[in-house]
Amino acid sequence: MLPAALWLGVFFVIPFYSLLATSLYDPQGSVLTGYDVTYHVANFWDALREHWDELWRSLWYAGVATVICAVIGYVLAYAIAFKAGRWRNFLLVLVIAPFFTSFLVRTLSWKLILADDGFIVDALQTVHLMGDDDRLLATPIAVIAGLVYNFLPFMVLPLYASLEKIDVRLIEAASDLYASPSRGFLKVTLPLSMPGVVAGTLLTFIPAAGDYINAQLLGSTNQRMVGNVIQDLFTDTGDYAAAGALSVTLMAIIVALVVIYIRKAGTEELL
């Protein structure tokens, strides 16, 4: 366990300690004059009070994107695991193919797809589902669409790994016992695939909640997420104390939500 312990120590424990110390800086300090660790716990309350809207928006966007990814990802993973046959490996390659392109380029492509003069907006306006002055870009729809696209593989792969392990004879047994396809799915397939569902939702929700690229490129100031605020505090305003406090607060909220979710899902062994 020594290599893993060293890895966690260097790349997790030490950075986390540095971030925690940053969150307790004296808020009166600055990049020029320096900061002192004064254990100013009020930094957390100030960060939460001033940026609650962005924090709530991040959790909401991430939650909606995770639900959409779960629905799309389950259908796709189920088709690959049980219906793809000899095309299974090819479809898996297509799932991970977007990772061959940078995250930034993939998001910029959505900016072109959802542009006001793009084919999607033109098609929706043609069938009168959108008005002439309506738009998709710089709206919550665009940001959530970007999150879904970028993080969908994180949902599909754990689901596929879980579904692929299911013994098809169990599904056949449900049918032999006069269970309808929907009842067999709810009573056999879905419960056996729950580890994949839980892993996929965690791998999707956690990075989506801290993402800022999609909101920056596909949204506007009205769609700013907490990641955008943290980036600005660190790089533009130089308010390290507020940035550190907001980062630790986000981490604490996500950890609490993850623990509650895992216990509610009945998979405490993942802890």
Rank of each mutant, 00 (worst) to 15 (best):
M1N: 06
L2Q: 10
A5C: 12
A5K: 05
L6E: 03
L8F: 14
V10L: 15
L20Q: 01
T22Q: 15
T22H: 01
L24V: 03
G29R: 05
G29W: 05
S30P: 01
Y35M: 06
V37R: 11
V37F: 11
H40W: 10
V41I: 14
V41R: 03
A42V: 05
N43C: 07
L48Q: 06
D53M: 10
D53T: 12
L55T: 14
W60I: 10
A62H: 04
V67A: 14
V67L: 14
C69P: 04
V71H: 04
V71F: 13
V71A: 12
I72L: 15
I72A: 10
G73N: 08
L76A: 13
A79V: 12
A81L: 08
F82G: 03
G85E: 08
N89M: 11
N89H: 12
V93G: 13
V95L: 08
T101F: 14
L108D: 00
S109A: 15
W110K: 02
W110D: 07
K111N: 11
K111H: 06
L112G: 00
L114T: 04
A115K: 09
D117E: 11
I120V: 15
D122T: 12
A123G: 10
A123I: 07
L124K: 06
Q125P: 05
Q125L: 10
Q125T: 09
T126I: 00
H128I: 00
H128Y: 08
L129F: 14
M130L: 15
G131K: 08
A138T: 09
P140Q: 07
P140E: 10
A142R: 06
A142T: 08
A142M: 02
A145C: 11
A145H: 05
L147S: 02
Y149R: 03
N150L: 12
L152H: 05
M155A: 09
V156R: 03
V156G: 04
L157K: 02
P158W: 03
P158T: 08
L159I: 01
E164T: 06
V168E: 13
R169A: 11
I171W: 05
A173F: 05
L177N: 12
L177V: 07
S180A: 12
S182Y: 02
G184T: 02
F185G: 00
L186D: 11
V188S: 07
T189D: 02
T189N: 00
L192T: 03
M194W: 10
G196K: 03
G196I: 03
A199K: 02
A199M: 13
A199E: 08
F205H: 04
P207H: 10
P207G: 05
A209W: 07
Y212M: 13
L218G: 09
Q223C: 01
R224E: 14
G227H: 06
G227I: 09
N228W: 01
Q231W: 08
L233W: 02
F234M: 13
T235C: 00
D239E: 15
Y240L: 14
A245V: 07
L246Q: 07
S247G: 13
V248S: 06
L257Y: 07
I260R: 09
A265R: 08
E268T: 13
L270R: 03
